[in-house]
Amino acid sequence: MDCGTLLKRCRQGDELAWEALVRQYQGRVYSIAYHYVGDTEDARDLAQEIFVRLYRTLNHVDGQTLLPWVIRVARNASIDFLRRRKARPPGRDIVADEMWDLPSQAPNPEECCAEGDRRRLVHRALGHLTSLNREIIVLKEIQGMSIQDIASLLGIPIGTVKSRSNRARIELAETILALEAAAGGEK
């Protein structure tokens, strides 16, 4: 079923259509939430909040712009979440950027294979980036948004997005090389 029909049925109150839409976009929404907040539990709560926001604003979007709209809502909700967390930090005193360095306590299937190690290294490196560079990486390289859409979403010129994107990729690659060198030195 195409996005337009799915959306139309969701607006009419079809629970099955809404469930299909949630299942279709849960991976992307959860990924965006995780890459913004850097914690699986917080990302899960945030992803739920994002879907509640999406449900409330179903009337404001058409089928053609569904994915950019989902990414926009997810991004805005993530920013709000980070602001709330900054204003009311959790009981444990952890700076947001430091959370990326912490080993996860939950068993993670990604740790079972080399591909998982590579992804974990990328996640750690993302945590070392500045918030704007991380956002550019998440939106452009991970979510595959166009430069025009990113410029519109962030409210900055297209040229700035291009230069920022290149710098962010270089910063990420340098961070990965540094982390690999540090890991090699430890071994």
Partner: peptide
């Protein structure tokens, strides 16, 4: 590697919880 991180699947109880919240 980065495009492979586009989707991360949460656990199976995620969708029922979302549906309960939106119901």
């Amino acid at each position: 590697v980065l495009p492979q991180l586009r989707e991360m699947t949460p656990d199976s109880s995620f969708v029922p919880e979302v549906l309960r919240s939106t119901r």
